[in-house]
Every structure is written in structure tokens, then in C-alpha cells.
Design a binder for these strands. Structure first.
Length: 832
RNA sequence: GCCGGGAUGGUGAAAUUGGUAAACACGCAGGACUUAAAAUCCUGUGGCCGUAAGGCCUUACGGGUUCGAUUCCCGUUCCCGGUACCA
């Protein structure tokens, strides 16, 4: 019988579907396990990255199910977003239609891969049943004071015609379309993620060891906490102070000038009435013309202009000139800095260029600095000098003392600054969740009452006017009554960033069909947190930070017990071909469907798990796929050889001693393989080595077969041992190649599907051998291999090693200084 | 620059607590089966020297610790990812 993967896979997919094999319910009598993979955007086709992501997840889900856990393994669709809108304009369809069609075809593909999802929990974020609760979340945040509206400099993507959050700007370009991002001044909605900066950072510590260090480091850097001080510099001749943030209050005596960001309101104000007026105007307009990328690149020339004004250094009492320069950013700190050229490279470069005063106030432990000639700023810790009564203080202590002084004098204070900005969630596009707010001339911003949710996204819109969001042109949508006073009012026409949808979908999965709540308290507290989350590294900051933020807020609102949504995180590497990420433009895309057609889902899944450890990039290899296909055929053939003979065998009786060496070796191999595969999946999450171990067992069965078939009489016990091996092989293979495993399992006469079978347990005593191979080294070099009885004492091993002919030859005439015996491993003889 | 991760055969990789480097697979070579091919099965396969027995070398590079280092420590080079006039 040939390995007919097409028939087998279709058969079992149908079986799982008809029986709802992977449907789960909350059951407090069972230990839960929530396995989640990042849900896909319904682009239309599954790609290899998905196969990898979901292949890894499914292996773990199936394994944990067999280990007896109540496993929640859901799937859904991150279905709002720009591609639908753009595709709809191009193909003259509707985003809803385009999206739903894509969902259907991708569902088919996921089914054809045999993933073990609870399909009853499937969600799509673009459906009112979902986005209704998205609006509800927004209002929860609103009521808690975590939502506000402000006019600000925003990142505008011209190509996408919308605003982007800071996290969505990559190297000055749009994360989605790669188009250039420009600054715009615009009003929009923000979520106060900065209120949670400290707790999000603290959380990184508790996740250490459970999330990849890399992701935690990226998040910590993104949050960017820095300790320092805020100091007020009085403007000379005006009742106005310039507030600066510095991480080096110990260098305050060396602040010889100040620099404002060009956008800083005081830049313009201070120059008025001075002879620098026109110079400042020209400078500001020049900087405005520069694009964001070159403005913020480090290699860019530092340029500035004197504002004509002076401020007073609060510690030295000196007048210091106030400049404005392109390298000071309005959106970090206070948008103004004190410049200490001797101890900051940028300040020094600027001072040299414009001939400003340099004063050394921190002395290094070794050598000395010459303010007149130095070209490299000394920015490490050192001893304070030329700093009045602070002279001699160092490092943190120095900074603390200066801060205390500033607080005493009420001219500054120790403070903490974050790099993290609030999350702008307004999008000027159609295909997203309508923001449930009404603008009333009398009442101001009025939230839509919960019983009026969802604010439906109208489907009868004209798309294609690329300048504006369609909602702003649709009177039936934006004309509304004020929920508070009943007067006619205007509905908000911005939609929510789609990252809002994905910030809590894992909670929704716990009560996917509930139409009373976003999620049921008992459900969410039973299932959450996600025990294992699997997804791409590209969401290290975006989705993973937003989700943590949402979950903390939910926690504070008493909606969920846990604080962190994802207990363990695995970020899988990319699938690459010819050294590059698969992409249409490079023409190196392998279509999963084609692989499934030619080799089957089991082969596709096996290859993708076998070819590389999960966290590493995986180089696609058609020969490697061929190899995995060959392996499954090899499994099938040896199974076919034995199936009839072992089908009616019983189990091996307890205390059975194998009649032959071959049988006891097969038994040992079987139990060793259980141990290896279990450990690889459960502890190490290393599926490539798990598959290798199974391959070794199969190789062993082939070697075993030759002796077996020539044997004339076989005891029932002997047949039972062989059966045990095949049962085990099938079970161990089942998380990786579930279809062929199910088929073989049923061919052996088992009546239950593997879904209900327990993971095999190894017997430690059966994994031991009677003889051990010991390596004998002389001076650390392997010279001989000897076999010793497993019960041999260290002394026995030592004398057997020393008595070996070859070792005697190696040690002849030399003095034996030391003999090291590592039980079960090696003997090292040190000679001179 | 800073942060994180890497570098092992012809290739993907393995070595779990410092203990036989290269498991498993691909590729390649040889053999069996076959009229032949495919498929399949078996054997070999890090490099150098040697007919062989065997020896020497080998985990990016240079040091160190240790009886023993792919693994730990110090330094260097290169590669990948993130981030960056962040005050």
C-alpha cells in the first residue's frame, strides 16, 4: 500500500471537523493551557511564514492536549486595515466583500494544513460583533481618563493618506507601505500609554526568562526611561523661564549656552525685538523644509542660530546665550537643552562651530582636559570641579546633591523622562472601527452610550476619493444627535488604528460568542494569560507593547485578574529563500498550496519544523522538503511491513525480560526516544531535534527488521514489544504529522482518534544499557574506547582503562600524574 | 555609537550541567535490485599525511582558566537584528 497523503489528509481533516475534535469549554476541573499564534491579516493567501508560525503552534497545542491539558487554540482574522481599502478601490469591490472572500479562502488553506483550531471561536475584527466591543474598550479607556484629543505634530503617510503612530514609523517611513512620512499638525485621538510607562518597564523584568531577551530589550529601549533633572533657566529681562531636561545635573556649572528646538514656542518669542529676528525666521523656515529623515540623521550638519536672548545659569549666575538648533527635538524632554560642550559631544561640535565658550567642570580620574583645545567631550563620570561647593563630588552622589540643591532653591528637581510617547489612534481612513464619540456644539465631546453600540460602519460608501476619509463625505453617517442634549451634532469620522483591535483579541477568544460582554469574567480569568504566544519578531514593539498596555488597563479596571497577557513568548524566525525574505518583488515565493498538492500538509509541516530551530531564520530548501517526504514514505513502508503482524498484539507485560538482544535494544531505543522527544517539545521547544530523534527510531526499526523477518518463531511478548515501538512512533510523530499518524493509528486497530490519546511515558529503567562505552583519553586526547559493565565501580573502570593494551603503549615509560574518571563518560589519564 | 543575537563539514544543522565535535537530514560517491530508468534498500562521506595500521589538525581569530573548552573568562574581526543628534 502506497503512502496516499491526499486521501489520508482529506479523510482526517473531515473527521476532525465533523467531530469538532478541538472544541473546548471552560472546565475548572482540568488544567488549562492557552496556546495562541498571532492572528493573520486576511491578505488572501497563506504564506510560508504562516505555515511556520501555525505549524509550531499546532505542534505544541497537540502535544499539550495529549499531555492532558484543556487546550484553547483559537484562530481569527485581523481584518480591518488599509490593504482592503486599497484593493477595493483598485478592483472596484467593497472592502467588506474583499475581506470576507479572503477569509474564506484562507480558512480553506488553514484547514488543508490540518491545524487543530477550535473553529467555533473564530473571530474577524471587521465584523460588528467584534468591533462593537472594540468601541466598548475605547469608552472604558475614555471613562478612565486614558483617552484625550490633542492637536499635535503627527506622522503623516501621504501614500496611505493617514496618520501613523510613532511605533509605526520605521526609519522615517511607513511600516506598511514604506512611503515617506511627513510631519503634519493635526488634531486626533490619543491613548495615554505614557501613564503606564513605568509599569510596562517593570513588567519587562517579570517577563525575563519567559520572553526572548531581545524583545524585552527592544521594549525597554523603546520606553526609554532616563533619570535626570529638570532645571529652570530664567530668561534675562523677561518674566519667562526655559525649562530643560538633563541627565547630567552634575555638569550644570559647565552649561555655557542653551539650545531650543526650532519648533519651541520661545524660539520665535525670544527673538522678537532683537536684531536676530530675521535670522531666526529664516532658520525656522529652513529647518521646516528639511525632511524628517535627514533632519534626525546623526551625520547631518548641526546648524543653529542665536535667538538674540540670554538666560541666566542658575548656579553660576552667568548670562548664557540662547540658541536654536536643528539637533534639538521638540518631542523629547522639554524641547530645550542646557549645553555643556566640555561634556557632551554634540554640544562641543556646536560650540566649536559657532565659537561658544567651553568650560571643563568634570575632571577625569586620569589626565586633564584643556577647554581651549579639546575636540572630544569627556562624557563619562568624573569629579566635579569649578562647581563651587560641589567640587570633589562624583557620579550619582554628585547628581543627587545638585538635585537637592535645585529643589531647595525651587529652580529644578530630580525627574524621570521617558522616550515613549502617547499612542495616536486616529486614522483618517474608512476600513476600521468608528470611534464612538459625538461632537456637540453645546456639550463638547460626548461618548456614545453603551446601549447604542456598535456605531455601525456604513457599507454603502463611495471609495476612491483619495484625499479624505469616506466617512467625512457621508452625511447619513456623520449627522447625529447628541446623546446628551439631543441636538443635532456631528459624529467622529476618524476610525481606530487597527492595532487597537489586536490589543485585546486574545481576551475575546475566551468568550468569542458572548453578545453580552466583550469577555466573560469567569472565562477570561480561567483562560488568561496566554500560556504560550507564538509570532513574528516584527511585532516586538508594536503589537506586543500595545497588548501589554491594554491588559494592564483591563487589570486596573478589574476586568481581568492577570497583569501580563502573554506568559511565554516565542518569536519564530523568517522563512527565507536564496538568502532573502520571500516576497513577490524578489520572485522567490513558494506557495504553500503547491507544496501541499505535491507532498501533503504533513510533509510541509514536518519540513518547516525540521529545517531549523524555531527562533532562527529558515532557509527554504526544495531538497529538504523532498527529504521529509521521503522520510514519511519510509515511515509508511516500515509500518506497512509490520502492521498485519502486530495489529492484534497485546501490551508488553510488566517485568518482561526481552528474549533477544535486538528486542531489548528496540525497547530501549523506544523509551529513549520518548524521553528525547518529550523533552525537546516541552522543555526546549526545539522541534528539529525532536524530529531527528524520531528519524533515528525509524532508522533503528529498519535495522531491526532484517533480523526480525528471518526469525522463525516469535513469542507474543516479542510481537508486543514491536507493537509498543510502532504505537510510540505514531504518537511521537502525531504533533508534527497528524494526518499520517491518525491513519496509522487506526490501521493498528485503535478505535479512538489520537486527539483523545495520552502522550506516551517512558520507563527510566528501560532506557539504561548493561554495558557502557567509555572514552579513554591520555592528556585529554581520545586514544581508546572501552566497554564496561554498567555496574562497574570507578576503580574497576580505572584499572580496565589502564590495563588496555593501547593505553599501556601510550603511557609506557611515562609518569602517571593523575587519573580522572567521569562515571559513564570517560577516563582521562594525565601523564608526563 | 548604544542594545541584543550570531560565526561549527560542500549545505541545513546537532552536541541538554565543561566530558567521544559534526547526531539527524540534504548533497555527493559506491554497491544491491532492474533489460534499463525511476523508486527503494545498503555502505561510505570534516581536512591533511599514510598502501595500511595509525598519526596530526579542526567549532571566525588571538590569549586565559581547566586533567579536559563549541560550551566559561578577556581581547579582536566579521555578519545579522533593533535603536539613535534622546539631552
Amino acid at each position: 500500500m502506497n503512502y496516499d497523503f491526499k486521501t489520508i489528509e482529506a479523510k482526517w481533516q473531515e473527521h476532525w471537523e465533523d467531530n469538532k475534535s478541538f472544541k473546548v469549554e471552560r472546565d475548572s476541573s482540568k488544567k488549562k493551557y492557552y496556546l495562541l499564534e498571532m492572528f493573520p491579516y486576511p491578505s488572501g493567501r497563506i504564506h510560508m511564514g504562516h505555515v511556520r508560525n501555525y505549524g509550531i503552534g499546532d505542534a505544541v497545542a497537540r502535544f499539550m492536549r495529549m499531555k492532558g491539558f484543556n487546550v484553547l487554540h483559537p484562530i481569527g482574522w485581523d481584518a480591518f486595515g488599509l490593504p482592503a481599502e486599497n484593493a477595493a478601490i483598485q478592483n472596484k469591490t467593497h472592502p467588506a466583500q474583499w475581506t470576507e472572500e479572503n477569509i474564506s479562502s484562507m480558512q480553506m488553506q488553514l484547514r488543508s494544513l490540518g491545524f487543530s483550531y477550535d473553529w467555533d471561536r473564530e473571530i474577524a475584527t471587521c465584523r460588528p460583533e467584534y468591533y462593537r466591543w472594540n468601541q466598548w474598550c475605547f469608552l472604558q479607556f475614555y471613562e478612565k481618563g486614558l483617552v484625550y484629543r490633542k492637536k499635535s505634530q503627527v506622522n503623516w503617510c501621504e501614500a496611505c493618506n493617514t496618520v501613523l503612530a510613532n511605533e509605526q514609523v520605521v526609519d522615517g517611513c511607513c511600516w506598511r507601505c514604506d512611503g515617506e512620512v511627513e510631519d503634519r499638525f493635526q488634531e486626533g485621538w490619543f491613548l495615554k500609554i505614557t501613564d503606564y510607562a513605568d509599569r510596562l518597564l517593570e513588567g519587562c523584568k517579570t517577563l525575563s526568562g519567559k520572553w526572548p531577551d531581545k524583545v524585552l530589550a527592544m521594549q525597554s529601549n523603546w520606553i526609554g526611561k532616563s533619570y535626570g533633572a529638570e532645571v529652570d533657566f530664567q530668561v534675562k529681562g523677561k518674566d519667562e523661564a526655559i525649562k530643560v531636561f538633563t541627565t547630567r545635573p552634575d555638569t550644570l556649572y559647565g552649561a555655557t549656552f542653551m539650545v531650543l528646538a526650532p519648533e519651541h514656542p520661545l524660539t520665535l518669542e525670544l527673538s522678537r525685538g532683537t536684531d536676530q529676528e530675521t535670522a531666526v525666521d529664516e532658520f525656522i523656515s529652513k529647518v521646516k523644509q528639511e525632511d524628517k529623515v535627514s533632519r534626525t540623521s546623526e551625520t547631518g550638519e548641526k546648524e543653529g542660530v542665536f535667538t538674540g536672548a540670554y538666560a541666566v545659569n542658575p548656579l553660576t549666575g552667568e548670562d548664557v546665550p540662547v540658541w536654536s538648533a536643528n539637533f534639538v527635538l521638540m518631542d523629547y524632554g522639554t524641547g530645550a537643552i542646557m549645553s555643556v560642550p566640555a561634556h557632551d559631544q554634540r554640544d562641543l561640535d556646536f560650540a566649536r562651530k559657532y565659537n561658544l565658550l567651553v568650560r571643563v567642570v568634570i575632571e577625569p580620574a586620569e589626565g586633564s582636559l584643556d577647554a581651549a583645545t579639546m575636540t572630544e567631550a569627556f562624557s563619562s563620570d568624573g569629579t566635579m570641579a569649578r562647581s563651587g561647593s560641589f567640587d570633589g563630588l562624583r557620579g550619582d552622589a554628585a547628581r543627587r546633591k545638585v538635585c537637592e540643591f535645585l529643589e531647595d532653591k525651587k529652580i529644578g528637581k530630580a525627574t524621570v523622562n521617558f522616550r515613549l510617547r502617547d499612542w495616536g489612534v486616529s486614522r483618517q481612513r474608512y476600513w476600521g472601527t468608528p470611534i464612538p464619540i459625538v461632537h456637540c456644539d453645546d456639550c463638547g465631546l460626548v461618548p456614545v452610550p453603551q446601549d447604542q453600540l456598535p456605531v455601525q460602519l456604513p457599507l454603502d460608501v463611495e471609495l476612491g476619493d483619495r484625499g479624505r476619509s469616506p466617512l467625512t463625505t457621508l452625511a447619513e453617517f456623520y449627522e447625529a444627535q447628541c446623546p446628551a442634549c439631543g441636538k443635532s451634532a456631528r459624529r467622529e469620522t476618524d476610525t481606530l488604528d487597527t492595532f487597537v483591535c489586536s490589543s485585546w483579541y486574545f481576551d475575546r477568544f475566551t468568550s468569542a460568542q458572548n453578545d453580552q460582554f466583550a469577555f466573560d469574567k469567569d472565562d477570561v480569568d480561567y483562560w488568561m494569560p496566554v500560556d504560550q504566544y507564538v509570532g513574528g519578531i516584527e511585532h516586538a514593539i508594536l503589537h506586543l507593547l500595545y497588548s501589554r498596555f491594554f491588559h494592564l488597563v483591563f487589570h486596573d479596571l478589574g476586568l481581568v485578574k492577570s497583569e501580563e497577557p502573554f506568559e511565554h513568548l516565542l518569536t519564530q524566525g523568517m522563512v527565507i529563500k536564496d538568502g532573502a525574505k520571500m516576497s513577490k518583488s524578489k520572485g522567490n515565493v513558494i506557495d504553500p498550496d503547491e507544496i501541499i498538492q505535491n507532498y501533503g500538509a504533513d510533509t510541509a509541516r514536518l519540513f518547516i519544523l525540521f529545517a531549523a530551530p524555531p527562533a532562527k531564520d529558515l532557509e527554504w530548501s526544495s531538497q529538504g522538503v523532498e527529504g521529509c517526504y521521503r522520510f514519511l514514505k519510509r515511515v509508511w513502508r516500515i509500518f506497512d511491513d509490520f502492521a498485519n503482524e502486530i495489529r492484534s498484539a497485546g501490551s508488553v507485560s510488566q517485568g518482561y525480560e526481552a528474549d533477544t538482544k535486538e528486542l531489548s535494544e528496540l525497547r530501549r531505543m523506544t523509551h529513549v526516544t520518548i524521553r528525547r522527544v518529550t523533552d525537546d517539545i516541552q522543555v526546549r521547544m526545539q522541534f528539529n531535534t525532536a524530529v531527528s530523534a524520531i528519524m533515528e527510531l525509524v532508522n533503528h526499526l529498519y535495522a531491526f527488521r532484517d533480523g526480525w523477518t528471518s526469525q522463525e518463531t516469535k513469542s507474543n511478548e516479542a510481537i508486543a514489544v514491536v507493537r509498543e515501538s510502532f504505537d510510540t512512533l505514531i504518537l511521537l510523530l502525531s504533533p508534527f504529522a497528524p494526518h499520517v499518524a491518525e491513519e496509522m493509528w487506526s490501521l493498528l486497530g485503535h478505535e479512538t482518534s489520537l486527539v483523545e490519546v495520552e502522550w506516551p511515558v517512558f520507563n527510566e529503567s528501560l532506557t539504561r544499557t548493561e554495558e557502557l562505552l567509555i572514552v579513554v583519553q591520555v592528556n585529554g586526547k581520545v586514544r581508546q574506547r572501552i566497554t564496561v559493565s554498567a555496574s562497574a565501580s570507578q576503580e574497576d573502570i580505572k584499572s580496565q582503562a589502564l590495563g588496555d593494551a593501547k593505553i599501556e603503549e601510550q603511557t609506557k615509560g611515562k609518569e602517571i600524574k593523575k587519573v580522572i574518571v567521569v562515571p559513564g563518560k570517560l577516563v582521562n589519564i594525565v601523564v608526563k
